[in-house]
Each structure stands twice: as structure tokens, then as C-alpha cells.
């Protein structure tokens, strides 16, 4: 398993370097930092001195090496739009996105898996058919429309829940603020989390159902019934366990989708997270923030893929037994 993890890590490095090259090329070729720093009026001597001080007279790959070195230390320059260090902007916004994404995932798994098991076991009941019909709508509705409809119903018409922001947040460390600690923070989390989690939930529901139908037909389930095990033990101890490999794959890969949809959800609910930061930066071409986000997103995706690969070993004993996967 260690060798497998190591080879996966090695494969990730060229991908990260390529993404790093793209994000550096953004810095190097788009816009003119010297004019931005000196303004329009400057002499040629001033210009040359600034070029030298910024290291812009170095060869391309030396500059790239400096860039990677700085990125490894968490230095991504200063945002054009907000005039603050990019690393601080991201650190301030990251907790909001992580809290939203984890709340949405927990919601999706906690509702999706049991509903999938239920509709898989009782496939003929009308309630199962209702769940499936509702899930079809969940798959087809675009995320931003779900958000708008939820706001229209629960914030505008019923006035039960707030429609934007994080509510009252409590600082945990110097930069991590949490919304979980206050009632208004939790209330503000509900609508965005449902919007973000809905697509995942329906996907998990349909997948678990399909896998359950498949597994319940196999011989070992019939054998378990012949041994006189309880339904409960058969469904959850034997059947559900064997549906988990594809379910984990999809949940893992969809976490990437979650990151992408958080762009949309955060814009609808004006949630002050990474997604909103990225969208606002793209709209005004704020290159330092964009290139930092590009690297960070690539890192997140590669990490998720690695975790998914490693989880196979935990779930599937057959992979652990074979020497080289």
C-alpha cells in the first residue's frame, strides 16, 4: 500500500508542475507589473532598475523556480483588486467554504445512503417511486435555480431562514472563524448546504439503490438468508458493505463537483468563501488571486483522488491481499 501511495504521489508532481507553469505564465505574460508599480511616468533607467529588482531580467525558468519556491512558502503576491496579500485573503475565505462543503457532504451522505438502501430494498413501494421521481428533479435542476427557488420559498415567502451571508461567526484562531457555534450561523448555513448537497444526495441515492439491487441478487445474500440471519444484519452488514467501493469513488470524485458548485452556491447566497472570491477575481481579471486559486484547486483535486484510491484499500480486502496493485 505504501508503494502504491508513493507512486500515486510521484504521478501527481508533473501535473502540479504543469498547473504551476500555467498559473506562472499568467503572471509573466498577462499585464505589465512594472507599469503597474511605477505608473505611466517613469524614465528608462527607473524601469530597468525595477526590472532588475523584480528579477524580470532572469531567464524564464529561473523566474518559474522562484515562483514555485514562493508558492511553497504560501506567497502568491498581492491582489490587484483588494490590495491585500493573496495568502491572507484565501486563509480568511477558506473556513467558510470548508464548513459549507462539509455540511453539504454530511447532509448528502446522511440522507442519500439510507434513502438509497430503502428504495433498493423496497423497490415496489409507492414511497420509493416518489423518492426516485423527486431525485430525477434534483439531478435536472441547475444549482443556481435550486438556490433561487429555496430563497423564494424559505426566505421571501415564509421568512424562516436568512438568504445571504454567514450569520454571526465566532473566531476560533487568528483567521479561522466558525459559523457552527451560533444559532444564526447554523440558520444561515441551512439553505446553502441544502442547495450544494442536493445534487450529490440524489446521485448517491440512485447509485446506492442500483448497487443494492445488484448485490441483493447474489448468492451470498441468499446464503445469508438460508442461515437465518435477520434482515437488518443482511441489509446493512452484508449488502451495504459490498456496495461501498463504487459509492466511495463517486462521493470522492463528486467532492470535486462540490468545489465547482460552491462557486455557484456562494454567489447565490453571497457566502464569503473561496468560490465567491474566485468568481469576483475572474470578473475583474485579478491575476494573482486567479493563479493562486488555480494551484490550490489542482492541489485539492489531486489530494481527493489520492484519498479515494487509498480508501479502496480500507474497503476492499482483496486489494490488500495482492502484493502489487
Amino acid at each position: 500500500m505504501f508503494a502504491f501511495a508513493a507512486s500515486r504521489l510521484l504521478q501527481a508532481i508533473p501535473v502540479l508542475l504543469t498547473v504551476g507553469l500555467i498559473s506562472f505564465a499568467l503572471f509573466a505574460f498577462v499585464g505589465d507589473p512594472v507599469t503597474i508599480l511605477l505608473g505611466q511616468d517613469h524614465t528608462e533607467a527607473q524601469r530597468l532598475e525595477m526590472v532588475h529588482r523584480l528579477g524580470l531580467d532572469q531567464p524564464f525558468f529561473i523566474q518559474f523556480a522562484y515562483y514555485i519556491w514562493a508558492a511553497l512558502h504560501g506567497e502568491f503576491g498581492i491582489s490587484y483588486r483588494l490590495a491585500q496579500p493573496v495568502s491572507r485573503l484565501i486563509a480568511e475565505r477558506l473556513p467558510a467554504t470548508l464548513e459549507l462543503a462539509s455540511a453539504a457532504s454530511i447532509l448528502a451522505i446522511a440522507i442519500g445512503v439510507p434513502m438509497g438502501v430503502y428504495t433498493g430494498i423496497h423497490r415496489e413501494r409507492w414511497s420509493s417511486r416518489l423518492f426516485m421521481a423527486v431525485s430525477l428533479i434534483g439531478v435536472s435542476l441547475p444549482a443556481f435555480l435550486v438556490g433561487i427557488l429555496l430563497i423564494l420559498l424559505f426566505a421571501v415567502s415564509l421568512e424562516w431562514l436568512p438568504s445571504f451571508g454567514r450569520g454571526t461567526v465566532v473566531p476560533l484562531t487568528s483567521w479561522w472563524t466558525t459559523g457552527f457555534a451560533t444559532w444564526s450561523g447554523v440558520r444561515a448555513l441551512i439553505l446553502p448546504a441544502v442547495t450544494l448537497g442536493l445534487f450529490q444526495m440524489t446521485l448517491i441515492l440512485r447509485l446506492v439503490r442500483a448497487e443494492m439491487l445488484e448485490v441483493l441478487r447474489t448468492d451470498y445474500i441468499r446464503f445469508a438468508r438460508a442461515r437465518g440471519l435477520t434482515d437488518r444484519s443482511i441489509h446493512f452488514g452484508h449488502a451495504l458493505k459490498n456496495t461501498l467501493v463504487p459509492v466511495i469513488t463517486i462521493i470522492g470524485l463528486q467532492f470535486g463537483g462540490l468545489v465547482a458548485f460552491s462557486l455557484v452556491t456562494e454567489t447565490v447566497f453571497q457566502w464569503p468563501g473561496m468560490g465567491l472570491l474566485l468568481v469576483q477575481s475572474v470578473a475583474v481579471a485579478d491575476i494573482p488571486v486567479m493563479s493562486a486559486c488555480l494551484l490550490l484547486i489542482a492541489l485539492v483535486f489531486l489530494t481527493i483522488n489520492l484519498i479515494v484510491d487509498l480508501l479502496y484499500f480500507v474497503v476492499d480486502p482483496r486489494l490488500r491481499a495482492s502484493r502489487d496493485p
Binding site: G256, A285, I297, F301, L302
Partner: peptide
């Protein structure tokens, strides 16, 4: 591995 919407957003931004 990257969702289409993210790729499109990035190319559009660049």
C-alpha cells in the same frame, strides 16, 4: 478530473 464549469471559468478568466 476538473469539472467542466471550472475549466471554462478559468479559460474565460485568462
Amino acid at each position: 478530473t476538473f469539472p467542466a464549469i471550472l475549466t471554462a471559468l478559468m479559460i474565460n478568466g485568462i
